[in-house]
Amino acid sequence: MKPKKIPNISVDCVVFGFDTTTKSLNVLLINRYLESKDSNDILVDDYVLTGYHVYEDETLDESASRVLKEFTGLTNQYKKQFKAFGNPDRLTNPKDLVWIKSEAFNSRTITIAYYFLINTEDIDLENNTHYAKWFPLKQLPEIGFDHKEIIKEAHEDLKVKCLSEPIVFELLPDKFTINDVQDLYESILEIKIDNRNFRRKLINKKYIVPLNEKQVGVSKKPAQLYMFSKDVYEKIYQKNYLISI
């Protein structure tokens, strides 16, 4: 039996990824395209977040995870619900109204927004049926609905969250350099960080584990590789929490 959707409640997913080559925080968007049936004129051609209606028999978290899996094929990724968007005018742009009519959507839809942190290497865009594409956060294309506002709010929440929890490592490969971590923090926080102080502080973290490996395939001197130990971090966090009591 086909799941029954709630017509005016949806989830929208901001999927963040980090490009270690361009050193940019990126967001994954899908092409929203619609032609007129009568004249083949292009009515809508822009980009939006991935999202869909919530089904009656699932939680909001389950709905967001389902949407991400359908979009990327990935499961068990870091996700955070950060805000609901319910402005009565959020879907009243002329292009949005055309799209809503073609898809028989409810124009008064409230959406629950999530963001996901993804290692870009885990996504195969070549075979993605949604015409998905990574865009640098500072170079976004024309975006439909109120999704530009949703992306902005997600980024602001990520800025705060990354300073209290080591979630940035969700955006990096399993093996990374100290420069990769610094570049990522600078990209998220939109600031410049003192290289020497940052390196010293990070290397002294017990959950940043040095590997007996260096970069390969680079033109410059290969850098030391490290990994993040979630187990060590959780033990330290638990210990510090007990001490603080």
Rank of each mutant, 00 (worst) to 15 (best):
K23V: 00
K23S: 11
S24K: 15
L28I: 02
N31A: 04
Y33D: 08
L34F: 10
S36H: 09
D41C: 07
I42F: 09
I42L: 06
D46I: 10
L49V: 07
T50Q: 09
G51I: 03
H53C: 11
H53E: 14
E56G: 05
T59R: 07
L60T: 08
L60P: 01
S65Q: 15
L68I: 12
L68K: 03
K69C: 11
K69V: 00
F71S: 09
T72K: 01
T72Y: 00
G73A: 05
G73C: 08
L74H: 06
T75P: 01
Y78F: 15
K83H: 10
F85I: 07
G86F: 12
N87K: 12
N93F: 08
D96R: 03
L97D: 04
W99Q: 02
W99E: 05
K101S: 13
E103Y: 03
E103N: 14
E103S: 11
N106T: 11
S107F: 10
T111S: 14
T111M: 08
T111N: 14
I112W: 06
I112P: 00
Y114D: 01
F116V: 05
L117E: 02
L117M: 12
N119W: 02
N119Q: 14
E121C: 09
L125P: 05
H130P: 00
P141W: 03
E142N: 13
I143G: 04
G144I: 03
G144T: 08
H147R: 05
I151L: 05
E153F: 04
E156H: 11
E156G: 04
L158H: 00
